[in-house]
Design a protein around this nucleic acid. Structure first.
Lengths: 247, 247
DNA sequence: GTAATTAGTGTAAAAAGTACAATTAGTGTT
DNA sequence: AACACTAATTGTACTTTTTACACTAATTAC
């Protein structure tokens, strides 16, 4: 057959889908593009891979360059390579996703991005290229991951309440969960540490604070823990305060 | 920034991991390479993607060219792009996998492959490039898929016995399953059709033949079926014939 | 001190999963 | 035809997991 040099070659990029969680909503980080094509459009933060760079390294580097973030959970999701997905030529992109704590993160301006902003996943602007498809694939992956691994903790501050944790799961799974059963499940997994601290500055009974015990979790995984959430079937109707009074 | 043409470009390929099932063993289709590098080594059937070709199309075409097969379940698994995975230059490969019925398939010679042969996944030769890593990733995917979707039927002939089905699951999951519970589970899913036919040519009580009812399965999926197998914890010891006699 | 708000908890019923052994329907041999 | 052999088929009690559901407790604001 023909020699190696005659084979078709394509440019390739990585696109990062960076999820965060804030005010009860799942967020994704988008940049406003400063280059053609799709100048001024919102897009996933991604860029070209270099010659001497592995894919995972490229994803990490691009993430760092566009956001300043290092050392985050980063995982390959899927590769997108439709012939016409980029108007300047054939560009194949490998999608990665990561989960970060928004509070730990300060947006740094970059020459590629005019703006960098968190967007609520439920209310997204139109995206450049096929980035809506890529995002959708990552949302699916996140959904699966959150049911399967304790990655939810990556999105929360180190100290959190059980209600915050539950809201996170509800936002990701897009389904309401039943409070008592959720707590039972979480506790049965036995990797939350009760910090003996309580919430402050709330106008109601303050919740206890917990943190995730990663060491304990790793030990449990070795022993064959099966971390799994099934979706709730029904809503927790039980407000139960003054409603449904029988006497 | 620099113009589009200045970005680094790489060759890219698809590699197909084609699983089959025969004589109670999970098999994978390998070719013996007829080109450098790794000439004469066993490898996954893969080849270069063309300019005007989507990734999925490329996987289908390559599969067809190397095996003659069309219209098979084909799914993208992961992309491998280490800097030095190919000695002739940077080559990024997208791994696909598919499940086929070995019996339906006749091996066709090709100019790329000196030989094409089914190999038992439990006894593999050394593979070219990073194909062992790719194969491992696909095995993991298959394992997950088989627990989660009724893809097992893709590997069996249209008519099969429950024991054959069980052996398939055992081979893929690499764990023994308990016969009665396996049957209960399968029947509870309610998408097997009893063909009212029996096995022929066996020197013992012949088993009933079944087929998979895809239409019914699709209907069940719409209704929110959860097809899932957990791994067995213990072996089925129950020979129960002459053993363990108490009188 | 009363109203408002959210946190926190227990239990019974249903469903799913597990462990386990005897009987049945064929073939092959005598 | 009886017997030995092999593998197929079936049921049930027990355990675990999941679900549904409603009240009391702790705090702030007024």
């Amino acid at each position: 057959m023909s020699s190696f040099d005659t084979y078709f070659k394509a440019a390739f990029t990585v696109d990062n889908v960076i999820f965060g969680f804030d005010e009860g909503n799942l967020k994704v980080l988008l940049i406003k593009r400063g280059e053609e094509p799709f100048i001024d459009a919102w897009a996933l933060p991604g860029y070209f891979v270099n010659v001497e760079e592995d894919l995972d390294s490229a994803a990490n580097r691009v993430l760092k360059e566009l956001t300043g973030l290092t050392n985050v959970y980063l995982e390959q999701v899927k590769t997108f390579g439709s012939v016409n997905r980029h108007s300047f030529g054939r560009v194949i992109t490998v999608a990665y996703f990561s989960l970060i704590k928004i509070a730990n993160f300060s947006i740094q301006p970059s020459s590629i991005a005019l703006q960098t902003q968190w967007h609520n996943v439920e209310e997204l602007p139109p995206l450049a290229f096929d980035h809506d498809t890529i995002l959708e694939a990552c949302l699916q992956r996140l959904k699966w991951l959150v049911k399967t691994r304790p990655v939810g903790f990556e999105l929360l501050p180190p100290k959190f309440t059980l209600t915050e944790l539950q809201h996170l799961y509800e936002a990701v799974l897009r389904t309401p969960l039943e409070k008592r059963n959720f707590r039972k499940k979480i506790f049965s997994m036995d990797f939350l540490i009760d910090l003996d601290e309580i919430q402050e500055g709330v106008a109601h009974r303050p919740a206890k604070l917990y943190r995730f015990d990663r060491k304990r979790y790793n030990k449990l995984v070795e022993q064959g823990l099966n971390f799994e959430f099934k979706e709730g079937r029904k809503v927790d109707k039980g407000k139960g305060n003054q409603a449904e009074a029988t006497a």
